[in-house]
Every structure is written in C-alpha cells, then in structure tokens.
Design a binder for these strands. Structure first.
Length: 480
RNA sequence: GGCCCUUUAGUCUAUCGGUCAGGACACAAGACUCUCAAUCUUGGGAGACGGGUUCGAUUCCCGUAAGGGCCA
C-alpha cells in the first residue's frame, strides 16, 4: 500500500451542502494534512434523478466557505480523475463484468415481479427478506450468453457464508454475520452502479488509504470488504465517526434543524466558527481548549480523542462561540468582515432593484431589506395567524406544515418553480393565493408589507425560507 | 422485526482502577451599568440499572434497559 495518506469525502449533490458533510470533511482534512497526505473530493452523482449541478456547485461553495480546500476534485482535477461518478460508468461496468468472469458476482435475470413474489413468500413465512439466490446457480456460460443476447439483468455479488470482521479504528473488531447480507446488486439494469460498487471501485482506483465516514455506513462495510477481496485489493483503514444528532437525538435532518452550510453563512456565522464548533463535536483537545484555529486542530487531532456518543448539534453553543470570536477581533477587522458579509453575499446586489422603489432615502434600504439580513426577524404568531381568515389554529398549522413540505419538494430553487409550487398548493388546499402569500410573507419577513414575495424567497434561499416557516410553526405549536 | 453501534448534568465534553467526578454552553442569583449586551462572582445539576472481577470501580467483563443507525 502506498504510504501517502489519501482521504476523501464523497457527497451526493442532492441538496444544500450539509453540516454533516463538513463535519466528516473536517476530520478527513485534518487526518490528511496531519500526515502530509491528500484530501480528495469526489462527487457521487449516480442517482441521476436527484443529482443536480446546482447542488454540486453549492457543495463546492459550502466546503470552500468552511475552509476545507481539496487537493483533487471535479473542479480542480488531479491524477485519478474523473472525480464525478457519472463520468465513470464505463469503469464500473467493466469491473462488475470482471467479477462475473471470476465468479464473485453473477447476473440476475429475475424481474421486479418475481422479486416481489419472493419477498411476499418470505414475509408470509416470517423469514428474513432478501434475494433468495435463484440466479446464483445458472451456469456461467449460460449466464454470459443470456447477457450477451441482451436479456435484461442486474449484476449481484455472490455473498459467501460466514462472518466478516470489520476492523474499525475507533471500535476495534466488529463482527457481522454474512447471513445478514443480501446478494447485493452491484450494477443496476440500466447499467448504473449501486453505491457500494462505485464507492469501492473509486476508493481503490483513487488510492484512498483511510476511509473516514459516518457511522451509518458501518453495517455496509462487510459488503465493501467482500468487494475488495473479490477484486484482490487491499482494503483501506476504516473509521466510523459518530453521527450528528437533532435535539431529540435522531440523526440530524433538515426537518428538525437547519443543516445547510449556506444557511449558517447567511445568518452570519463565521466560517472559522463553524469549523471550530464542528471540531468540538465528538473530539476534544488535549488541554480541553474550546476556541482554536484550524491549524491547531490539524496538529492535535487524534483518533484516540474521539468519543463515540452521537453529539447533538447545538445551535446555541455555535452562536456563543461565534460571539466569542466576533468579540476577539479588533474593530477594523470586524468592520471589514461585516462589509464582506453584507456586500459579498452573492445575491445581495439583486436586493437593490426590489428595494429601490420602496426607498426615499438610502437608509431606507436597511429597513426594507432587514428581513433578509437578519438571522431571524421577529414574527408575531397572532398576527401571522390573522392572515388566514376564518381558519382555526389547527387548520393554520396544517396549511403551514403542508407549505413547508411543498417548498422542500421544489427541485430547483428558482422563481418559476417556487411560484408554481405556491400557486398549485393554494389551489390544492383551497386557499386564496393572496392569503397563502401573505402568510408566507409574514412568516418570512415578520411584516405584512414586503418586497415581492417570490423574489424574496428565491433570494433568501431554500434553507432560510424553510427554517423561518418552521420557526413560525413552532411558535404556533405553543399557541393555545 | 433482524443485526450493529452507543450510554458522565438539558447540551458538548475531561477522567486512560484510587479525583471533593473537572471544564464549556444553557439556566438561576449577585456585582458592574442609564438600558441591553459583554464581563466577573456565586449556585443548582451527572457516572442508565443489575450483577460480577478487584483491597478499590464512572473506568474492565456479563446481562437488562434506553437512545441511535443499517437492512427489510
């Protein structure tokens, strides 16, 4: 194995850049830097349905914002590219075939209906469900011939009997019974790889020496080890970091917590605060210091100092830390930072046309756009309720919850999509468009009068919009 | 439901068998102050439970419980 440490993060571009990605990224970054290694960004966009270039760009932006510069990646290149999985499908297909030839994998011709029947039978017998291995026993020659003839198929891993031992750097040996694992699909019928195949092939081909990822992957590590073995490759070292949590201890999610890096940037959290705070979760410095810089973390990071209980992401403490860091700056530096924050926000300039016709003095700009600049405007829950005439509190809550759902479902956050979502929701829910709009307006701006709603929402961004609607919903929940 | 992981205060954590169980956020009280914030002082609050091992367990082992994750 090469002795240069190579670490990677491999986010899927299916939404806003996530604090969890930054968290895992930070650890990978620290380990790579501490060992004079390389930190690589790979984009796992094999889910064509959900992946967007918009989201990919946002991930680049978010990760750069927290200060995690990568040495190799789709946008900066590198010797092991391409770094975008959608551009590597031939590689996966070739590798899947290689396993079929060696017998470690086999084509499966079962139709979705047959698979469903198998599952039904298993369920009625109260057996563990999973592929029953019907196509396992098709002789290789016949199987190859049927593939060549173009019969629809997937390629499955032939999972052997026995147990697989995962050597996790943080937990030691973890034993998992292979009986627990299905004959995994490696290549789907459309020729696209599944996560497991692509991940292992890429990690190997990109020379990854240390896989540091979230704990949710620990149970699939045996599959990965089987693949390494089937290919005859040495596996990397594994470390599974604890999962960030919501206040209720469930895995952190946007339903219960703002998770977008762009959201935190937008409310004015400093990037150094964000990385500092993330470095406090699940890891401690030898002298217990809590305020420190990235280079100190790189120097002091150690797997020995990781605690495995999943830490709750506490926005209160994040903001306290941000205050500490703001107060520690000299006034001139802070002035510069404030200016950068207010004027370097990518879309701030587009606020001007909206504000312009509502301004009589330059200072009015601040008033007209304050809802955009502030972390959370004050919203009067009773006033917000007043926008919906004749609705009970419960009805109002339901409508707001539905609105949140619909807006979360908007694929691309632009003028047309947001407007369509809101208008069709009004129709569906049989609410006057005007009423729905003014509800959203009050929730988002705290005022009955504001610049045009849809433009405002687009500028606020989806995370901020969603967060503010949820905030009002929370306020409503504590209403009588 | 099966498997895996985890378990110190509301939250983040320290402790690598012997500590008055330490620190931070939050909370409360006081001081300072035109107010607020900041700051300082003080305070309450923790080893999930039950068994072992040991002279001695928060710490090691087993069981239970709870939380979480993955697969379905």
């Amino acid at each position: 194995m090469s002795d240069t440490v190579r670490c990677r993060i491999a986010p899927s571009p299916t939404g806003d850049p996530h604090v969890g990605t930054a968290y895992i990224g930070l650890v990978n970054f620290a380990w790579a830097r501490q060992n004079q290694g390389r930190f690589i960004l790979r984009i796992e966009d094999t889910d064509q349905e959900r992946s967007t270039r918009e989201s990919e760009a946002a991930i680049f932006e978010g990760l750069r914002w927290v200060g995690l510069e990568w040495d190799e990646g789709p946008d900066v290149g590198g010797p092991f590219g391409p770094y975008r999985q959608s551009e590597r499908t031939d590689i996966y297909r070739e590798h899947a075939l290689r396993l079929v030839r060696s017998g470690a994998a086999y084509p499966c011709f079962c139709s979705p209906e047959e698979l469903e029947r198998i599952r039904q039978r298993q369920r009625s017998l109260k057996r563990q469900t999973g592929y029953d291995g019907t196509c396992r026993s098709i002789p290789k020659d016949e199987a190859m011939a049927r593939m060549a003839a173009g019969e629809p198929h997937v390629i499955r891993l032939r999972v052997p009997e026995g147990v697989t031992i995962v050597h996790d750097r943080l937990r030691g040996a973890v034993e998992i019974d292979n009986g627990q694992i299905d004959d995994q699909v490696l290549l789907k019928s459309d020729g696209f790889p599944t996560y497991h195949l692509a991940n292992v092939v890429d990690d190997h081909l990109m020379g990854i020496t240390d896989v540091i990822r979230a704990e949710e992957w620990i149970n699939s590590t045996p599959k990965h080890l089987m693949l390494y073995r089937a290919f005859g490759w040495d596996p990397p070292r594994f470390a599974h970091m604890p999962l960030l949590r919501n206040k209720d201890k469930s895995k952190i999610s946007k339903r219960k917590n703002p998770v977008s890096l762009l959201y935190y940037r937008q409310i004015g959290v400093l990037p150094e605060t964000m990385r500092n705070y993330l470095a406090l979760l699940g890891h401690s410095m030898p002298d217990e210091r809590e305020v420190f810089e990235l280079d100190e973390f790189v120097r002091e990071f150690s797997f020995d100092r990781i605690s495995l209980g999943g830490p709750v992401f506490d926005v209160e403490k994040l903001l306290w830390l941000n205050g500490v860091r703001i107060r520690a700056m000299d006034a001139a530096t802070l002035a510069g930072r404030i200016q950068d924050h207010l004027y370097a926000l990518p879309r701030i300039a587009s606020l001007v046309p909206m504000a312009q016709e509502r301004m009589r003095t330059l200072g009015d700009f601040v008033d007209v756009t304050s809802f955009y600049l502030v972390a959370q405007p004050r919203v009067d829950p009773t006033e917000a309720l007043g926008t919906l005439k004749g609705k009970t509190v419960q009805e109002a809550r339901d409508l707001l919850a539905t609105t949140i759902e619909w807006l979360d479902g908007v694929r691309v956050w632009d003028q047309a999509s947001v407007e369509t979502a809101l208008r069709s929701l009004a129709e569906e829910a049989q609410v006057k468009t005007g009423e729905l709009f003014s509800l959203v307006r009050v929730a988002v701006s705290g005022r009955k009068a504001s610049p045009p709603l849809i433009e405002s929402l687009v500028l606020l961004g989806r995370a901020m919009t969603s967060q503010r609607l949820r905030h009002l919903l929370d306020q409503w929940k504590s209403l009588p």
